[in-house]
Design a protein around this nucleic acid. Sequence first.
DNA 1: CTGTATCCTACCCGATACTG
DNA 2: CAGTATCGGGTAGGATACAG
Lengths: 135, 135
Amino acid sequence: MAVSEQFKDGFAQLPAGSFDKDCPTRPVMAQVTGRWGALIIAALVPGPMRFSGLHRHIGGISQKMLSQYLKSVVRYGLVERLVEPTVPPQVTYSLTPLGQSLAQQLCALLSWFSANTPALEAAQQRYDAADSPAR
Amino acid sequence: MAVSEQFKDGFAQLPAGSFDKDCPTRPVMAQVTGRWGALIIAALVPGPMRFSGLHRHIGGISQKMLSQYLKSVVRYGLVERLVEPTVPPQVTYSLTPLGQSLAQQLCALLSWFSANTPALEAAQQRYDAADSPAR
DNA sequence: CTGTATCCTACCCGATACTG
DNA sequence: CAGTATCGGGTAGGATACAG
């Protein structure tokens, strides 16, 4: 396997091919790490949810974006779309096994951001204060 | 701490505030999970690197974007910028402790994508074949 | 070598209105 | 309820040229 092996301890195998301009994961990454991708996946972790539920749960997202991102993640096999033939129609979204395994990574990332928000904000203030007061 | 507690096993504490429209981590997330953020952080994991090194290492990135993203991650305290007063000037970028801790999450994510590329591609083909042949 | 400045294009995304 | 269609603004991002 073409994976770098001389990395420091604690860092398992790293991308390697991820830096390739034509790496096929680039488009998927772009979607999942896009503005709403991670939040949608994360929102489905506790359990399946309906369209309107997601719309309510994820603050600030528009119907258009929700619909668009959902289509993507369904296409990638991360989320399953289940239509109940009732009237009015009910559509339930849930994580596939693949999606759940990704969700673990995403949750870890979101948790990291939550936990380190203070440090990040402090760094910004330090930077802005020290450097460009005039700009 | 305002963290949901009724989650399935295997999923530690999840965002909670991450779904808030005004969550302060949103802008940081947008940058770090932007198109180049993760790749830049990941590229610095093996060790410090110069501007030109990063430019060569990360396929497809332009000088403008590299410069712009670097400024962001430095501002967030994730990366340190070290200028050697030589001529021509040499600028070395390296991960701060904060950046290294983030890098672990990011590497895990990149690794996940590398490992699951086949599954993702298969899902796409299945989706495209089953659904919209005419489009 | 390490950037910055400028121009320009594409598309991300939101608001609104409409369909089934 | 669960979307799609359309319009339009803002900005991400690339190419090029230039500066320190």
